[in-house]
């Protein structure tokens, strides 16, 4: 009986404490920050242990990819030379016209070391943090498009909130028609472009890009493609289901924009 009372008391105390913790996310995130720093090495070890195994299984595919990449690399080198020439010309012309030189993105390349422990939340941990000048709110991309935003920063690791998470939301637009909405995730991990007007010009296959109106993300970063369009339950607005350009569940490396 005493044991039963003790259990009930413990449970009640625990419910109150967890309610307080959940209610104040800023103060309660301390254990998560500590874990972010401490778990970097074991997570990296567990993740890296699979690389030789994966390489052996996918040997033929990797070989084919390497050949293709070599060819692409040569083409890109040529293209880079042309671009450098164009950039130099652009710079000279800007100087002549008196424009301020626009600074390019400052990027940090980071390796993904783990994903969220829950299946209904979408985040990942990268192996770079404050040491590389990464700050909360920095946009995260790959060469294909948008990945998410930095949500927590430790000294040597950071947690990224993915675009498919329920807490993510930024302004985005339809590239073809400039119709503006808010892109956010859902519990199922599906991205939706919400709050579009009923008469907005949007159709399946349209490309969605960041609008730049939210200062967190530079404009023009590809987000995904429209796969479906439906009316909201209220009937006042329309939402589009967006398939992300980046395969979020299979990310290995990402780029963090630390300055733009």
């Amino acid at each position: 009986m005493a044991n039963k009372n003790k259990t009930i008391l413990l449970f009640v105390v625990f419910v109150i404490v967890t309610f307080l913790l959940i209610k104040s996310p800023q103060t309660s995130s301390l254990p998560q920050k500590i874990a972010l720093n401490l778990s970097r090495l074991p997570l990296k070890l567990v993740g890296l242990s699979l690389i030789p195994f994966e390489s052996a299984v996918n040997f033929n595919r990797i070989l084919g990819e390497a050949t293709l990449l070599k060819k692409e690399n040569q083409q890109l080198k040529l293209y880079l030379m042309q671009l450098q020439e164009a950039a130099a010309q652009n710079s000279r012309l800007r100087e002549l016209l008196g424009f301020k030189q626009s600074s390019p993105f400052a990027l940090v390349i980071a390796r993904v070391i783990s994903f969220d422990a829950s299946n209904i939340r979408r985040s990942l941990v990268i192996d770079k943090g404050r040491n590389y000048k990464i700050r909360i709110g920095n946009p995260v991309i790959t060469s294909d498009g948008m990945v998410g935003v930095v949500a927590e920063v430790g000294n040597s690791a950071s947690r990224i909130l993915l675009i498919s998470d329920t807490d993510f939301s930024i302004a985005a637009k339809v590239k073809r028609s400039n119709a503006i909405g808010i892109i956010s995730g859902s519990l199922e991990g599906v991205c939706k472009l919400k709050y579009l007007d009923l008469d907005d010009d949007i159709q399946r296959g349209d490309e969605i890009i960041s609008s730049g109106e939210n200062s967190r993300f530079p404009a023009g970063i590809p987000i995904g493609t429209v796969t479906d369009i439906s009316k909201e339950q209220s009937g006042l607005t329309v939402f589009a289901v967006v398939k992300p350009k980046v395969r979020l569940s299979a990310l290995e490396e990402v780029l963090v924009i630390i300055n733009y």
């Binding site: 625990f14 967890t18 913790l21 959940i22 996310p25 778990s39």
Partner: peptide
Amino acid sequence: GFLKDIFSIASFGTHMF
């Protein structure tokens, strides 16, 4: 729950509860 919370973006305490 504690383990799950520190490795998730969910508010701390959610999985413990």
